[in-house]
Amino acid sequence: MQEFELRASDFGLVLMNPNQLIVGRGTAEHHPMEDFLRMDRMPHIWCSTCGLGTCLTAFIAAVEESTIPREDIVVVSGIGCTGRAAGYLKFDSFHTTHGRAIPYATGLKVANPRLKVCLISGDGDLVSIGGNHLIHAARRNMDMTVICVNNFNYAMTGGQAAPSTPQGAFATTTPYGAFERPFNIPFLVDSCGATYVARWTALHVRQLTISIKEAMLHRGFSFIEVISPCPTVYARRNRLGSGLDLMKFYHDHSITKNFASTRECDIKFQQDIIVGKFVQKDEPTYLDAMDAQMKKTLGAKFVPYVGPMDPGADSGRTKSDART
């Protein structure tokens, strides 16, 4: 059985030093990442040259590189093309309702603080229907990693306009061109208190992987926007060519500016895209702040959260039912 290594260059990706990135090792009989994928669900539903495969690859590579125990990682998705990510990743995974991935994940984290909660969802899901939850999770500095795959439209439903659609771009619901101002998503979450904010494109596999790893190891609300090609609806309707053409566009038009002011990260139709790690700071998480405040006010009377129920227990009683 011949062993092989997959390198980014094998996929025709042009990186600064492509041989640095080994995206997987395996044998011809086995997919190099099959330990992390639900192989019994393949083939996936995503279109060829869609950026979502790259995002999943980067996510798995980041998990492998991090030292986080595998069983602690849970993946939560909302609805849409990206919403299907949870179903393909072999972790405890939750495919929730449209827009509600963040509060669902909040419940998981607060009820079971040991969990490393990761969300992979789309721009429509997180920023439009889920926008209220996004800003509040950022405000709380809720300890979770949100990967927002932005393909500039609602792709699953056939290419409708989203709050991320650049002005002038065409979508089925903006047949004469989008005229609403889109969100500058990194600025939005930054201004709401996110403590880790980055943006990359699906081309920046290495940087994206590093960012996801950093975000997962970060304590607090970490957010990564991934600009991702949608060849089937967005690119076709806007005559932008194939997914590969969009990757070339990202190559020519991405400007890396680490710690750039997020205020300046607006995306205009087919113009330069500022990418980079914009924010990284240490601030108390929701759970830190809660504990500190309770200790301050209640002193010795404060009983920290007992944690979830014990699956080994035969009784329905909680641990704290024993007299304290």
């Binding site: 309702t97 419940g107 998981l108 009820a111 979830p308």
Partner: peptide
């Protein structure tokens, strides 16, 4: 939504 997540996290 948080309640559903919490239930799967193991909480009542």
């Amino acid at each position: 939504a948080a309640v559903l997540g919490a239930a799967w996290g193991g909480a009542r």
